[in-house]
């Protein structure tokens, strides 16, 4: 397949960085040195599985493995359904991959998490961010719906025209 501009340009959108705490120290250093292989290995040693997931998302995204990063975000959210960073990164990755369904589902859950656990002073800006992501997700969903409608339309029109042509052929063949 020839190259994809959409995925290449997505590298310009940075993800939300993981929490920097004691456990992150070594990984952050390896990550900064671009030793993604060692950094990823180190995440498996972490006792905090959610923080490990945050780092995996970061590392896999930096290495350009967007599906892997999205899967890591989902795995982290399964353990911590109120993690705002993972929601943001997950939605961002789903948008990059053009998956409107996943993006809007993550946005919805993200919005709920902000309302439940988000710091009150950051809530307006967080909600504004969700809204921006939701708009992009809605655009993707609308495209997906258009694509589905176009498929149905194309199928029915083709079949109808073919059937009409064949009927006309049969009719014309009768002397």
């Amino acid at each position: 397949m020839s190259g994809s501009l959409r995925l290449a340009s997505a590298m310009a959108c940075a993800l939300c960085a993981p929490t920097l705490c004691g456990q992150s120290g070594d990984i952050a250093e390896l990550f900064a040195k671009s030793r993604y292989d060692l950094a990823l290995e180190a995440t498996h040693e972490m006792s905090d599985s959610v923080l490990a997931a945050e780092w995996r998302v970061q590392i896999l995204d930096a290495a350009g493995d967007f599906p892997g990063a999205l899967a890591a975000a989902r795995a982290g959210l399964a353990r911590d359904p109120d993690n705002l960073r993972l929601y943001q990164n997950g939605a961002n990755l789903a948008l990059t991959l053009g998956d409107g369904v996943a993006a809007s589902e993550l946005c919805e859950r993200w919005r709920g998490a902000i309302e439940r656990v988000g710091p009150a002073e950051q809530r307006p800006s967080d909600l504004a961010r969700v809204e921006r992501f939701e708009r992009d997700a809605a655009q993707l969903l609308s495209l997906e719906q258009q694509a589905q409608a176009a498929t149905t339309r194309a199928r029915w029109i083709s079949l109808a025209l073919l059937a009409a042509s064949l009927a006309a052929l049969v009719r014309l063949m009768r002397r």
């Binding site: 397949m1 020839s2 994809s4 959409r6 053009g98 495209l143 997906e144 258009q146 694509a147 176009a150 498929t151 339309r153 194309a154 199928r155 029109i157 083709s158 025209l161």
Partner: peptide
């Protein structure tokens, strides 16, 4: 009408068969 603008290559490929026939 049969292939909306804005679709990525991977999504559009699926429409090539029916879309081009129509």
């Amino acid at each position: 009408w049969f292939l909306p603008d804005g679709l990525g290559l991977d999504r559009a490929i699926e429409l090539w068969t029916w879309g081009s026939l129509a």
